[in-house]
Amino acid sequence: MSNITIGQYYNVNSIIHKLDPRVKLFGTLIFIVALFVANNSVSYAIITFSLVAVIIASKVPFIRLIKGMKQILIILIISSLCNMFFVKSGNTLVHFGAVNITSGGVIKAAYIGLRLIYLVIGTSVMTLTTKPSDMADGLEKSLGFLKVIKIPVHEIAMMMSLALRFIPTLMEETDKIIKAQTARGADFESGGLIRKVKNYIPILVPLFVSSIERALELATAMEARCYRGGVRTKFRPLKYNKTDIIAYGVQILFLAGIICANLLS
């Protein structure tokens, strides 16, 4: 259990992996905006082309990208079907009792489906190429402006990275407690729902107690190491290099392209 990977980071060395997390966050944002404003085949073509280009550059196998698709399959089917049945425009293709499927409906359904698929793939590229800890750093830096309205951005980012650090430790702990209680004859399978929930108390209580103990000890250790919130320097400061600037340029061009394509229709 200890070698479990957190998030779905795919460890290879590519130009996309090397980009500053802020660039990738911004790019993902632009991509999402583009998906929602795109309204014709030309803009979809631009999006498709760009997405494929990024995927190839990221060296992430395609199979890893569509893995995330399983979870949204149902939403995908339902939303596509809804559009197919309820959008009425263009020629009627099938007419059967109350069911009336039009060509406009089918096209709309296809676009919605594509939009959802692209959304999942696009965000997966981000999570597959960025370490969770870098993501936390990137978020902290790019959302820094929120400090003005008293949102504790640094603290939230710190909590995120501490959570990541402790997930494997807590997994191991859970495993150990389950074994210890099993050795005391505990039974986690039998009984109805309420009984089953009750069965888990001998695991949840010790886990909760030890998590709080850990948290307290960690807080003391952090204080002892002079941690006092935001006033600190960075060992690995986020710094833009040439590629990052170029990437920002490409992203702006991409958005401009989509807007132009939209104006065409």
Partner: peptide, 21 residues
């Protein structure tokens, strides 16, 4: 286990020095 804050060794070693700015 309860005194290391970062996932990577060298990041953890840097933590205190970062706090001292």
């Amino acid at each position: 286990d309860n005194q290391l804050v970062s996932q990577i060794v060298e990041d953890d070693v840097a933590f205190g020095a970062e706090n001292l700015a």
